Structures are given as structure tokens and as C-alpha cells.
Computed example of a mutant assay.
Amino acid sequence: MGHSKEQLLARLQELQIDFARSDHPVVMTVEAQAKYVGNIKGALCKNLFLKDKKNRFYIVSALSETKVDLKVLSQRLGLGKGGLRMAPEEAFTEVLQVPLGSVTPFALVNESARHVSLVLDRGLKTQERCIFHPLSNDTSIALNARDLDKFLNSIGKTLAYVDLEANPPIGKDQPPDLAALVPSDAIVLPDLPEKASLLQGHEHSGHKLHNDIPTNNKSIIPAVVKSVKPSVDSQKKSTNVLGLANSFADPNKFVEEVLEKTSAIILSEIKVENAKQDGEQLGTALVADLRKRLSEELKSMATMFKNVAYTEGFAAGTCNQPKRL
């Protein structure tokens, strides 16, 4: 179960974060919100909840007037022109644990959302205060970017303020400038063709839609594709290779393998030294403690390693190429 609105506001008070609160009817658009927040000073914000083809999720928080081109943003993340689309409705409750129309950076306080990447509009820092829903769209709060940073730091979230209206060239000698923001610790699924009616590159605020509401949700579900069944030998070989590649591409799986091997070694050593039942019980307890204490730290280290390896590898590959005559 996710945090409630009151739990979040209590946490902000514990952090000594100053905010102005306005309770109002449920609102589903920025325009509707504007009618009820005149008693608090601040800039209205829109928040897009997005996913890529490999089921990695993103929250993009921006000033309401900032133009966000999903095609450009997708390219800057290294996902290609059509790599981003609105997240499906079920992801709001399963990943963020907030109702439709309530997505903001505060949703990242929930444990289920810790792998969601956050992209913040640089324009937020230019405002005295910015207005967000505190996990529920029947309330709005206004706070400054410095205090938003304080909250995000308290939950261990990386801060990334970017110029969302920029369109830098991307090519052979110019890698995607936002590639490090792709959540590499998410489960990587094989790409499947999807219907062409997805909302890609759509400027939602221009159409008066709410920040985070998915439209035509059925088009987000991948289509079922039939393929020719390979031979048994080739299928086993490709499965083994794919499994190995995914293990190293996904830090979660990589860490699980490390923990499994470590656990097996500890158990075997303890059972050799202690053939009695109490030795096995001791080994099980040690393994449980080991997994609990090292899991998150190793996942974080593996994610950092992958991001650095990507950046350094790309730079080395482009810099070391022979010059053409």
C-alpha cells in the first residue's frame, strides 16, 4: 500500500519543508486546477507518466507552458524517435500507487516506484514556487524547487534538471545527452511491434488534457505476433545466449546471480563445518541476512557501473575511430 496524502504532508513537515496548501474538488486538468489554487502563489506544473518499449517508466515534471516533444525526448534518452509513450492505466496503481490525475515527483516516495526515472524541467528553478498534487488530485501544494530537491534527496532520488525544449543534434559523434537517465535497473523485455496509433510526440498541454492521463489505452498493449518456430537445438542455444545477455543487461538479475552464488558458497561451507541441523539453520539465517543487507547496495552499484560503462564506452568508440581522408 502506498503513502497517503496526509502521510506525505507529515513527511514534508518532518523535513521542515515550507509549503502552502489548497484543498479543492478533484481536478483532472491543469486548467481546472487553476480555478481552485488562486489562494496560493506558484506556477502550475504538468507531470507526464511515460514508459518505453522495455517497460521502463519515467515521470517528466515541467512548467505547464513548457513544450515537451516526446519524439525529441525519446531520442535524447537514446530510445529512438518512437521509444516513449504514455504509461498504461494499470501502471498508475501498480507502479506509482496513485490515482489518475495525481502523478507528481512525490509519487516516487512509494517503494514500488523507486526504479522510475525522474526528469525535471529546468524552468522549475526559475519560479519562486511550483504547484503539485501531493499524491491526490483533490489537494494542491506550492513549494520552491530547493525544497523539492530536499524531499527528493531524502528518498535517495537523483536530481536531473534539463532544458526540455532543447533539441540537440544526436549522431555518430554526438551521443544522446540524457542517456544516463534511462532506468537501467528495470526488467528488460524483448521488443514487440505495437499499434501505430500510440501518442508519440504529442504535446498534451496544448490539447488541454491532464498531465498524466493515458488516452486510447488499448493501443498501448503490445500486439500478439506469430513467428516461425525454430528448431529445438537453435532454440536452446538462442535461449541460453539471451538469458546470459539479459542477466548482464539488467542489474537486478545480475545482482540476483551474485547473491545466489554467494549464498550457495556460504551454505556449503557451513554445512561442511556443521553437519548437524543447527548448522543448517545458522546458514539459512546468515544467507537471509546477507541478501537483505547487500541486495540494494549491490543493485545501486551495478546500475552506476552500467551507466558509466555506457557513457565511457560510447565516448571511447567515437573518439578512437580513424579519421577519414
Results as ranks from 00 to 15, higher is better:
Ile270His: 09
Pro190Arg: 07
Ser154Tyr: 01
Gln75Asn: 13
Gly206Ala: 13
Arg85Cys: 12
Val308Leu: 08
Gln13His: 06
Asp18Thr: 09
Glu269Phe: 06
Ala316Arg: 11
Leu198His: 04
Leu124Glu: 06
Ile131Gln: 07
Ala32Arg: 03
Leu242Asp: 06
Asn252Leu: 15
Asp121Lys: 04
Ser300Tyr: 06
Asp177Gly: 02
Phe248Lys: 01
Arg146Asp: 11
Lys71Asn: 14
Phe57Arg: 03
Gly101Ile: 09
Val30His: 00
Asp121Trp: 02
Leu44Gly: 00
Ile187Pro: 05
Lys67Tyr: 14
Pro88Met: 12
Ser136Asn: 13
Asp52Leu: 00
Lys261Gly: 10
Ala264Pro: 00
Leu8Asp: 06
Glu273Trp: 04
Tyr310Met: 13
Val272Phe: 11
Leu178Asp: 01
Lys53Phe: 03
Asp147Cys: 04
Arg293Asp: 15
Gly78Arg: 03
Ser227Phe: 04
Gly201Ala: 01
Lys41Phe: 02
Ser205Asn: 10
Arg85Phe: 14
Leu298Arg: 10
Leu181Pro: 01
Glu269Gly: 13
Gln281Leu: 13
Ala186Pro: 09
Pro322Asp: 04
Glu312Arg: 14
Arg11Ile: 03
Thr303Ser: 13
Asp163Ala: 11
Pro190His: 04
Leu290Arg: 09
Ile170Asn: 09
Gly82Tyr: 10
Gly201Asp: 00
Val109Ser: 13
Pro25Lys: 04
Pro105Trp: 05
Ile221Pro: 03
Pro251Cys: 06
Val103Gly: 06
Gly283Trp: 06
Thr104Ser: 15
Ala223Cys: 02
Leu12Gly: 05
